[in-house]
């Protein structure tokens, strides 16, 4: 259900880009998806395959999903670490003063079309 909402946002953006670039058919969409974005790739592709058939410019469009690993940086020791196994606490200095660098992306990277 959540993934379908994301797909609707994607389709709005893609329709705009197609119009700006005078594309009549988009054949491929490359999406960068953060590991902790809360979006499940399999569900996203299922929703995509359903929704694209209802969108003229996306009839034949294939969605390629590239995962972006979640990385957190520690504000105290300056080191980075993988977010998923460690969470908010820095494994190097145990500080809770950490910020997520990557992992929330739901980014349309490139599209192909004519």
């Amino acid at each position: 259900m959540h993934e379908l909402g994301i797909v609707f946002h994607m389709i709005d953006t893609l329709q705009e880009i197609a119009a700006q670039n005078e594309l009549t058919a988009i054949s491929k969409v490359n999406l960068r998806l953060g590991e902790v974005s809360g979006v499940l790739p399999d569900y996203l592709v299922d929703c995509w395959d359903w929704a694209k058939k209802r969108t003229d410019v996306l009839q034949e469009a294939v969605l390629e999903v590239e995962q972006v690993d979640a990385v957190t940086v520690c504000n105290d020791c300056g080191k980075t670490y993988p977010t998923v196994p460690q969470g908010k606490t820095c494994p190097h200095c145990q500080s809770p003063n950490t910020v997520l660098l990557h992992g929330l992306e739901i980014e349309i990277d490139t599209i192909e079309g004519c």
Partner: peptide, 18 residues
């Protein structure tokens, strides 16, 4: 058939909403 164009988008799908 027209040549396939590759377009660099690099935009978050939430950007329009933002």
């Amino acid at each position: 058939m027209d040549a396939i164009k590759v377009i660099q988008v690099k935009e978050d799908v939430r950007a329009n909403n933002d």
